[in-house]
Every structure is written in C-alpha cells, then in structure tokens.
Design a protein around this nucleic acid. Structure first.
Length: 885
DNA sequence: TGTGTCACG
DNA sequence: ACGTACGTGACACAG
C-alpha cells in the first residue's frame, strides 16, 4: 500500500504570521482593486514549500469559526484583551479560502471549536488510519500533538523558515514531553490566550516542577514535598486555576468533525482557476513559477504605459525644461563614488528624456540645466546625485525636493534606499522596485533591453515628480518643513563635499603596522596552541568553545543561542585562573585591528589620491544620527593604545598641514539638562562643574569637604549614561558590577536629586503613548508603535527609546546645524572639514590656519543652537589623527 | 544569510 | 515574572 501523507494547516495562525512577517511591506502588497495581499502571498509561499516537502496525498486547512468556543464557556476571559484583528488582515480571509479552493485543498471550520481542535481530531483519526501527518502552524501549543506519526512544523521568521518538532525535539527544546505541554501551560498560564496559571510560576519553574512530578496532578499529589514556602502557598491558592488552565490548553481530539479522511484527498490545483486567481492578486512571481503563456513578467497588473524619448547628441536641444524638472541618475551599484554609470532620466510630467549615455549630461544644454540654481530639481537621494554628477564635472544646483530625504523625515522606518518602495509607502503604485526590474543579489544587473530599462527610469522620474507635493504637504503638517529646508537638505551637500574630499591614509604606515601585528599574532597563536594541547581555529567560536569548555573543562559561565559564550566578559573572568583566556583576548584584539582596520582600510584606499572616501548614510538611523560605511570612519579605534595606533595612518593631504578636531563635551547630558529644565543639572553645567563628579556628590551625599574618588565618579558616570539610555536597575547593576538592589537605590536617589530629569523621562513615555511618536528640538520624529505593545520586552524597549531618542536625536540636530554653518565660516580658508563622528568634527588645514580654526570652529559649534545652558567644545591639533589628545 | 564578536559615539 | 541599557558597521565562521 502506498504511503499516505496528510498535511494539516492551522489557517488562522499561519495567515496571522504571514501578515506580520510582511507587515512592513503592507504598502507594496496590494492588487489593482486596493485589496491587501501580503498574508495571502506569505500563506502561498508557505504552501509551496510545504507541498513540495511533504508531497501530501491528503490535505486540510482548518480555520477558527468565531470568537465563542467551548473554552469561552469554561472561562469567560479566554483570549480576552486581544487586540481586534487588523482590517487589512480580515479582508484577506475570503480570498485565502478562494486560493485554497483553486489549489484543491479542503478548508473546514466548526462552530464552537478552534482550528486546533479540528487539527487534533483529524490527526488522531489519521494516526489510527496509518497516515504520516505534518501539522503546520505558528503556535507552539500544538507541539502537544507531536508523536511518532505526527510532526509539528512551526513557522519561524515569518513563514519562509520552519522548525520541525518531533517528540525528541520537543523534549530537547522545551524540556518536557509533548503530552506535558498542557501541564506546563496549566502551571504557567498563557498571556496571549489570557489565562493565568499559578502566580509566581514562569516557564522555568513550570518545567522544573513538571520534570519532577510528571504532571499538574503529580504536583498536587506531592504538594507537601515542596519546600519553597512562597511557591507552595501560590500552588495551593491557585489550584483551581491550574487545573482550569490545563483544561484550556488541552486540544480536543474528539471534536465532532464531520469530515472523513477520504474527503481530504489532495489531487493538486485547478490550474486555470489558480492562474486567474494569481492574476487578480497581481502575483507575478507565482505566475512565473507556473510559466504561464501570454503573461509577460514585467507587465505588472495596474502599471500604466509610459512614454519617453531616447536622447542622443542629435536631439539634445529638444529637452524643454524651464523652471522645474525631475532628474534621476542611475548607477550600477551602491557605492556611488565608484559605481559605473548606467543612464539617466530628466523631464517633467509632459515628457521624459532618457539615455544610457551619461556623457550627454556634460554637454551644454543639460549641464547648464543641472548647474542652474534657478531650475528646481526634484530628485531621489540628492547626495548620491551630487557626488555622481561631480564625477562628470557637473555641480548640481537647485535641488528642491529629495524624495528619499523627505520620506525619511516623515517616517524613519521608511528608509529603504529603493525608490519603488518609498513611492509605494506613500501610496504611489506606478513604479516598480529596483529588485523587481534589476533582480537581486548576484543576479542583479541593469537590463540590456532598452525598453525595460528606459521605462523603469521614466517611471522613477514620474514618481519623484508626482510625489513632491504630497510629501511637502506632509512635512508642513508635521511642522518639519524647516528641518528639511534648513537642516537635512543643505546637510546632504555638505556631506557630499566631505565624501568627495575624503581623508588621506598613509598606506605604508598601515602596512608597517600590519607586519608587526602579524608577528604578534603568530606568537600568541603558538602560545595558545601549547596551552590547548592542539591546533585549532581560534577565530571560530564553536571550536574555541569546544577547547575551553569540553577539553579544558573551564567553567561555563554563560551560553549563547548556539553554544558557549566566549565574549570578553566571560574570558576576563576565566583569565583569573586560565592564562589561555588572557591570550585569546589578546589575540582577538589584535586580530580585530588587523582584519578590520589594517587590511580593511588598505582595501579601500583610492590609489589615485591616496584617500578613503566614506559614504555617510543620512537616511538610516532611527535617531537622526549619521552612519558611515565603506569604510566606516566613525569607529576607528581610540580606547586602547594598540588600536589607537591606526590613527597614525590618517594624515593631512599636504606636508606641513595639521589635523584638527573639535568635539562637544557631554552634549547628550547638556541636551538632557536643557530638555528637562532640571534646575540642579543646569546649575552644574552653568557653574562649569565636572558633571559626573557633581552627580557623584549628589547621589552619594558627599559633603563639600569630602573628596570625589575616581571610583565613585566612575559609578556616577555610569548612572548618567544609564539615564540617557533609558535606565533600568538591572542594566546599571550589570554595567558597574553592583547588586540590582544597590542600582535601584542609585536611580532613586538620582531622581530625588534631579527631579526635573525624572519628570522628563515620565513625560516622554507619556508623549509617546499619547501621540505615537517623540520629537527632537528640530522636530525630527521617531514613531514608537510598540509603546502600547502587550509584549513586555517590546514595550519596555519602546519606553527606553522614548527617553533616549529626543536626547540622541537633538544632539544629532545640533552638530548638523553646526556643520552647515561651518562651510560658510570656512570660506576663503584652505581648511577643510573631513569627518563627523557624532559629537566631533575633524578637519585638515595648513599649520598657520590652526590658531584661527581653534577660535572659529568652537564658536560655530557652541552657537549652533541656543539652549538653556551653554554648550562646551574642546579642540585639538596635531600632525596625524593619532596626535589629537 | 544569520550569529557572535568587537570597534566607535 | 518578564529580561534589559541607546545608536551604529565590519569581519569571520558556519550552514
């Protein structure tokens, strides 16, 4: 007899997972009728995977029938407090059922029962009939159904990845057998289904108890053996709840399901119906998968035709642009300092001109147009466009709208660098993403087909032109127009010029350091091998873990998801008794410097000018800070001497010049003092006190005659940092190695001494709750949807960011303003601004200009904004970056 | 491609 | 009871 394989799917659970996995792309997944399709799409992806893997002979998708079930009769509040299903998801269910019908898969729901019960019942019948069954769900509770005939596949990471639970795997992962899952639930309850279990019992204790006594019944049979007094009290008090919770968690395997296994026979899809469905949903990927005739892949449903003219040297004069145009310069690759030019589009809603030949841009009519500040340009990523054109000898001027920048300011989560995606976020659907047109990963390439490429370019320009008004209006509504016009837009050009300028790196110096590090590494390596008694890969956490904890039997202090932790903190503790740990730390430190900084930097020095040209990402961070890539020049070592040596390779571009830097001193705490209006903190800054020492005096209640020792200053400093990060007693205790209770005491005292700060932190959390976002002094926004999350971790994280973002973000605002003013201030000087490292600006200049800079730069920086307390700036100069101390 | 580790403010 | 500091990027390894 042929093997019978049954695929059972928990429809609600998988749809729910798919919906949230693709939630951030909700805007991209709509069909021509405006129906959201992300859950349907994700569900179908899962189906394809599972059908392929399982090759079922029978299949069923079970759905919940409604809110009222036999469980709500047992317990009124079952699944109470659950947020209502999002309408964007609910509307997809009827279509999901249609999809399943077209795929030839039976669907079923049963009043009074949940999908779980239908699945449990069907699986039981299938087991009796000799089937091999696979259950697909997003809900771990169903692992109680795992046995020799039935495995439970839980979709993780959205729906693309699954985790298969066999009885052995359940035991390994959860510490109990499948049958005992319900006992665990009985004791610990279930937050998402809203039933309580026993007070004071979480997952850990529940597993321990069940491991020892076998079941909830077993626990109560041996209740007298339990010595922990509090635990016993809770168990006794909550006995009824425990038994009720166990019942609620138990899947009913004898529900009145009026389906026979015969009804579930799976014979594959009805092809025509499925094709028609995919077409209605606009699922090009799935249509391609079926290689349907007459459906061209690029013909996205709903995408209208677009007209354009191909430019050549002969028809350049046809380009008719008077006061405004959209422009997009396409390159093959992210690194616009080096990427090959692929083409461009210029024009307006009446007409689009395109070409692959960027040299046309260097010719009179187009060059003049681009350099004319009177012609307003609408672009996507002004900085990238400016740098690209600069390579062609063109200085872009007159940029009005930058779709990317505007979109980022409106919502930092919409920070995709892809025009198609950004457009979709703002409700514009007439342009595809680059991924759709160019492909992704290794397969990504500019199309050789002119029509495909030019159409896409024209659609990009059209999207830019069409969205400008909307986004400007949104910025006005958010009170962010000034942030855009006065800060971010000019900032883009300041950054572009810094990137183009680059900073000189002495490759010989780096190579010399490199060979020294190589020698040191070889030496430490040998010592480690001797200590270990064998050779192994020190860089592999897995092999290292094996040597330290299995071969050498060092104590396991901490574990990671995948094995033993060998992080610094762990090795430092081990180093007390085991010299090998000390050597590994040394090895790691040098290996890091060698690979990331010596070798990494050598790779990116431009041979033509001996410089490195980073790219600042202006639309990435959630706080408004910049980030730096390719290479990252914002994390060049400074804290250890070996690392700091790397800075010797950063030199001025001319002999006799100097590197100069100015940094804001404690800008974040000053911002906090300003925003919180805290009188005590403001006083400390106004009096020019050492803020950490002042804080130490306050929280340790020192008299004026008592000395602030380095140790208590260090602790006070950690508390100050903690406040800025959104403090927790646990975090603080970890950081400075004190007990949690002590940390809690510190924080309480801190808030007593700085009551304004306490009020500020509470106010920010409240603001986030009330309006859904927090703001910086320049009206930069960060939305915090998780602030109302029922998940403790997500909510706590949102609360900490509500406190931190206005501080970190306002500091970012301030230095950006200073940088914009700086360019003007440096007019007529040879000095050049090269780098920004969050609270620090780095320049190069002829030695004779240094005294001028030393006055000018701090003046620009501390007058960037007017706060309730002064800003403080410190400056340094020297022959290399290393010498700035 | 995800994880662990470590570099910076 | 929950499980933690905020914001980043690059590298090596392993699957």
């Amino acid at each position: 007899m042929a093997e019978k394989r049954l695929l059972l799917i928990d429809g609600n659970s998988v749809a729910f997972k798919a919906f949230f996995a693709l939630y951030t792309s909700l805007g991209r997944f709509t069909n021509g009728d405006g129906l959201h399709t992300n859950a349907i799409y994700g569900f179908n992806t899962m189906l394809e995977t599972m059908l392929d893997k399982v090759q079922p002979t029978h299949a069923l998708v079970a759905f919940d029938a409604g809110k009222v079930t036999f469980r709500t009769k047992m317990y009124d509040d079952y699944k109470g407090g659950r947020a209502k299903t999002a309408p964007e998801l609910s509307e997809q269910f009827p279509y999901l059922k249609e999809l399943l019908k077209a795929r030839g898969i039976k669907t079923y729901e049963l009043p009074n029962y949940e999908a779980d019960d239908i699945i449990g019942t069907t699986a039981k019948r299938a087991e009796a009939a000799g089937f091999t069954t696979t259950i697909v769900t997003g809900d771990r509770d169903l692992t109680q159904l795992a046995n020799d005939h039935t495995t439970v596949a839980i979709s993780k990471k959205g729906v693309s990845e699954i985790e298969r639970y066999t009885p052995a795997y359940v035991k390994e992962k959860m510490g109990v057998t499948p049958e005992q899952i319900i006992d665990i639930k009985g004791l610990q309850g279930d937050n998402s289904d809203n039933y309580p279990g026993v007070t004071g019992v979480g997952p850990k204790r529940a597993v321990d108890l069940i491991d020892q006594y076998g079941s909830v019944e077993g626990v109560y049979d041996h209740i007298d053996e339990i010595t922990a007094k509090k635990l016993k009290e809770h168990l006794v008090a909550d006995k009824d709840q425990a038994f009720l919770s166990k019942k609620l968690a138990t899947i009913n395997r004898d529900a009145p399901v009026d389906l026979t296994l015969e009804d579930l026979t799976y014979a594959g899809p009805e092809r025509d119906a499925l094709v028609a469905f995919y077409q209605r949903m606009g699922f090009r990927k799935f249509l391609q998968g079926m290689s349907v005739d007459g459906v061209t892949p690029s013909a996205t449903p709903g995408l209208k035709a677009i007209a354009y003219t191909v430019l050549t040297a002969a028809n350049l004069a046809d380009v008719q642009v008077t006061d405004e145009c959209a422009f997009y310069l396409e390159m093959d690759g992210d690194n616009y300092h080096l990427a090959k030019f692929a083409g461009f589009v210029i024009g307006h809603d009446d007409h689009w001109w395109v070409s692959r030949d960027v040299s046309l841009l260097q010719m009179a009519p187009l060059k003049q147009l681009l350099e004319n500040a009177q012609v307003a340009k609408q672009v996507f990523d002004a900085k990238r466009t400016y740098v690209g054109l600069n390579r062609l000898g063109i200085t872009l001027a007159g940029v009005d709208g930058d779709l990317l920048l505007c979109s980022y300011l409106l919502n930092t989560y919409d920070n995709s660098n892809d025009l198609g995606r950004v457009a979709a976020e703002h409700g514009y659907d007439q342009v595809e993403t680059d991924e759709d047109v160019y492909g992704r990963g290794a397969k990504r390439a500019i199309p050789t087909d002119d029509t495909v490429f030019f159409k896409h370019l024209a659609r990009k320009a059209q999207a830019i032109a069409r969205l400008k008004q909307t986004l400007f209006k949104d910025l006005e509504e958010n009170d962010q127009a000034e942030l855009y016009r006065q800060i971010e837009r000019p900032m883009a050009f300041v950054l572009a010029r810094m990137e183009i300028e680059g900073i000189t790196v002495d490759a010989d110096e780096l190579r010399a350091m490199g060979s020294k590090f190589s020698e040191q590494l070889a030496e430490i390596e040998q010592t480690i091998y001797q200590e270990a008694g064998e050779e192994f890969n020190i860089g592999s956490p897995k092999q290292l873990g094996h040597i330290l904890f299995e071969k050498m039997h060092l104590p396991v202090l901490k574990k990671t998801k995948t094995g033993y932790s060998t992080a610094v903190g762990v090795l430092e503790k081990l180093a007390v008794d085991a010299p090998i740990a000390e050597n590994i730390l040394k090895y790691r430190k040098i290996a890091k410097i060698q690979s990331t900084y010596v070798e990494g930097l050598l790779k990116v020095i431009n041979p033509a000018d001996h410089k490195v040209h980073t790219r600042y990402l202006q639309t990435l961070t959630q706080t408004g800070r910049l980030s730096s890539v390719d290479p990252n020049l914002q994390n060049i070592p400074v804290r250890t001497e070996e690392g700091k040596a790397i800075r010797k390779a950063f030199v001025p571009r001319h002999p006799g010049w100097q590197i100069f830097s100015s940094d804001y001193s404690q800008i974040e705490l000053r911002v906090l003092a300003h925003m919180s209006h805290d009188a005590n903190m403001q006083e400390a800054f106004r009096e020019g006190e050492d803020i950490h020492a002042a804080t130490a005096r306050r929280i340790f209640k020192l008299g004026s005659d008592q000395e602030v020792t380095p140790n208590i200053r260090r602790q006070a400093k950690a508390v100050n940092f903690g406040i800025v990060y959104g403090i927790s007693d646990f975090g603080l205790s970890q950081n400075i190695g004190i007990s949690r209770k002590q940390a809690k005491q510190f924080i309480e005292t801190y808030f007593e001494e700085y009551p304004g700060v306490k009020a500020y932190t509470e106010h920010m959390v409240q603001v986030a709750h009330d309006q859904g976002y927090v703001e910086t002094i320049a009206h930069r926004r960060r939305y915090l949807p998780d602030i109302n999350s029922r998940n403790f971790n997500q909510r706590s994280f949102a609360e900490r960011t509500a406190m931190n973002t206005p501080i970190q973000g306002s500091a970012a605002d301030i230095i950006k303003i200073a940088m914009i003013h700086m360019e003007e201030a440096l007019q007529g000087m040879q000095a050049t601004m090269l780098l920004q490292v969050h609270d620090e600006l780095i320049f190069e200049a002829p030695a004779e200009e240094i005294p001028t800079l030393a006055k000018l730069v701090p003046k620009i920086m501390d007058s960037a904004v007017k706060l309730e307390i002064p800003l403080k700036v410190e400056s340094h100069a020297g022959p290399t970056w290393y010498d700035l101390k």
